[in-house]
Design a protein around this nucleic acid. Sequence first.
DNA 1: TCCGGGAGTTAACCTAGGTTAATGCGAGAT
DNA 2: ATCTCGCATTAACCTAGGTTAACTCCCGGA
Lengths: 198, 198
Amino acid sequence: MNAETDAPYRALERRAREAGIEGEDWVRFVENTRVRSIPKGALLVSAGEPVNDAWFCSEGLFRLFYPLPDGREYNVAFSTENDYVTSYGAMATGEPSAFSIEALEASTVVEIGRGVLRELMDRSHGWERFVRLAVERLYIRKEERERQLLYLPALERYEAFLRKYPGLDRRIPQYHIASYIGVSPVSLSRLLRSRRGR
Amino acid sequence: MNAETDAPYRALERRAREAGIEGEDWVRFVENTRVRSIPKGALLVSAGEPVNDAWFCSEGLFRLFYPLPDGREYNVAFSTENDYVTSYGAMATGEPSAFSIEALEASTVVEIGRGVLRELMDRSHGWERFVRLAVERLYIRKEERERQLLYLPALERYEAFLRKYPGLDRRIPQYHIASYIGVSPVSLSRLLRSRRGR
DNA sequence: TCCGGGAGTTAACCTAGGTTAATGCGAGAT
DNA sequence: ATCTCGCATTAACCTAGGTTAACTCCCGGA
C-alpha cells in the first residue's frame, strides 16, 4: 500500500476503528477492495440491473436517481466526499436496482464486492457492526427526507437541501436540485425569484 | 416461560435463529425483555420525547405519524402482526423522536430496552447481525416508499398501499389511509369514486 | 325509538405547481 | 468576434388536489 492508494482509505479506516475493526480484519478489507477512478458522466449502477458492489466516495460527487419510463428522472440523493455510494437495498436483496448512480464529477471510490462484504461480516463481529452502523446512517437519512418531502413546502425543502449539502448548489446545475426537492426546474426558478424579493 | 407469554416470542425466535442466535444468546434476550399489552389509543412513543425501547408487534396494529404544529398529522407507516414497531432513528441516536406511535387496536408487543439491545449487540455477533438485518428491512421499505411518494400518482399510491398492507383498508378509517398516501380525505374519496367508475 | 357523533361523500371554489414555449445569457469552441 | 449549446428565466395557461362546508349514513347509547 503506497501513499497514492492509501489516501482514499483514510476516512474509512477511521470509521472502521470506531466499529472495533483492527489488525487482521482491516488488512483483509484492504487486500480485497480496490480504488477506482470514475470519469464524469459514468454510471456506477444502472436501474434495472443487479448490483454487485458497494462504494465509498473519497473524492468527487454522485447523484442517485430514478429514471421514469417517460424519460424523465428524479434525483433522490447525492453522495460526496467521505460518503457511501450504494444501491444498498438492491445489493442486500439481490434484486435489480430501482435507481441509477451517476458520477457528476470525476471521482475516486473504494469498491467492495458483495461477496467480500458478506465474508467480512461472517468472519468478523466488527465488520458486522460496521455495516449495521452504515445502514443505520442510510436509514436515518431516509427518515428525515421522508419527513421533508411530506410536510415541508417546496421553498423550505430547498433550504433544507442547502443545509444538508453545503456548497453543492454551486457544483451542480439547478435542475438537479429541482429534481431532488421534487419540483420542476421552472417552478424552482419561480420560487427562488420570490425568495429574493423577501 | 409458560405457554401464554411464549406465543409472542415465536416469530421473533424464528428470525433470531436465521441470524445465527441460539442457546445462551436467546435465553439472555428472553430474560431481559417483556411482553406488554397496549390498549387501543395508547401512545408507545410521543413525538419530541426520547425513546428508550423498541418493540416487536405480535398482535394488533400501530400507526407511526408526524404531528404537525398546526394540529394535523401525517401517517408514515403502519405496523401489524410480526413486525417491528420502533422509532429506530431516535433510539439509535438518542435524539427525541420526530414522530409518534399509536396503537390503533389493542395490541401485544415484546419490549426491549435500548441498553439491553446494546449489550446483546456487544456480546454477540449474532445479535449484531439480527439488528443489521432488521435495519436493512426498515431501510428497504423507506426506499420503496420514497419512490412511491415521488413518482406515483395518488391513486396508484392507494393501490400500492392495498398491496403492501392487505386487508388493512378494512381495519382502519379511510382518513388514516389518505394521510398515509399523502392526500386529503376528501381527495381520496374523490379518487375512489372516479376509480369505481373505471 | 330517537338522538348524537364520527365517518364518508359531494359540490364550489381556490391555489401551488406543472407544462409549454419564448427569451436571455454566459462559456467554450472555431 | 461570433456561433452554439446548455442552462436559467419569465410569462400564459392548465390541472390535480387542497379547503370549506353542506349533506348523508351508520352505529351505539339512553
